[in-house]
Each structure stands twice: as C-alpha cells, then as structure tokens.
Amino acid sequence: MTERIIIAGSGGQGVMLLGKVLAESAMREARHVTWLPSYGAEVRGGTANCMVVISDEEIGSPFVQYADSMIVLNDESLRRFGGRLKSRGLLVLNSSLAQSAPPAKIKNLESRPFSAIALELGTVKVANIVALGCFVAAGGIVGKGSVEGVIKGKAGEVSTDIITLNLKALSKGFGLAGGSRAKGGR
C-alpha cells in the first residue's frame, strides 16, 4: 500500500512540521516514507505545502501529483490543491479558514474548525496538530500511538507544557473524525 499525501496551508500554520511529524510517525512504524517541502519564495506569506509518501515498499517519486489524501488548512490552499485529490480520496479541511466549497466530487470529507478548536486549547499554533489528529483517525494511515511517540520524543527540544498541549491537541483532533475510513487506525 502506498499513500500519497499533500498537506497545505499558509506560511506560519505549521504545515511543514505537521508533515514532518506524520513522516516520523510512519518511520517509527518501520515503513518507507518521504517528505518533500515546497521550497520556493512562496513559503513567505503565501501558501506553504509539503508532500508525504508512506509505503510498505521502496518509494519512487516523493512528488505527489494526485493525492490519496489531503490536509488543507486555509482557503487559498483548497483552491490551489483541491483539484488534485483523487476521486475517492480523503480531505481533512480546516473549516475555520476554508470557506470555499470543496470540489463536489469529494465524498470523503472531514471539515472541522481546527483553528477555533486550537484557540479553545489556548493557542491557534496547535491547529496543525488538531488537524493531524483528525487525519490520523479518519485516514488510519499511521497509528495514534506512533504520533504520540513522536511528540513525546521532542521532550529534549521543547518544554513539558508544549508536549502536553500538543498531545491534547492531537487527542482533540482524533475525537473529531466522523469515522471516514478506519477510525482508530493501525
């Protein structure tokens, strides 16, 4: 199985970090994984995106033309990338900032107010991890435990408060999913 994922938002929303945490979670599950950032001048202020490929086999291209699943954190990114989601693909969408209607063909949609929920948790900065939690529950591509392991693994780099907050954000997001594909994950 190979899962090709696009993660997009605006610069500053933690899109790159979200992708790295997801990639590291897959690595902890001993799977093949690549992470490819957009590295143009577009990172400043405009849309930021990264591509994550998770597979049980050696991965060819780290570039994702058409995505099996997508996490989109703002409106502009939805307009830019929405058309690149495969017809049966999963879209995890931040409804706090993405007001445009997602493409009608998308059947597998988790549209939740990640930014608003993050604000309730204390800071909008964790909207990315709330979204990741929702993605983990709805997509079933990596296990929640693996993601928690990655977050806890940052203990040497950030304060305990930040770890606790992110774990809370992950759980909150995890509880939001309506059970699209495989709630509970691997």
Binding site: A23, M27, V33, T34, W35, L36, P37, P62, F63
Partner: peptide, 10 residues
C-alpha cells in the same frame, strides 16, 4: 538535484 537535497527520508 533539488528534489534529493530537499526531501527527507529515514
């Protein structure tokens, strides 16, 4: 190439 330089892998 830029892809190899920028991408992350384990």
């Amino acid at each position: 190439d830029g892809m190899l330089g920028q991408m992350m892998e384990p």
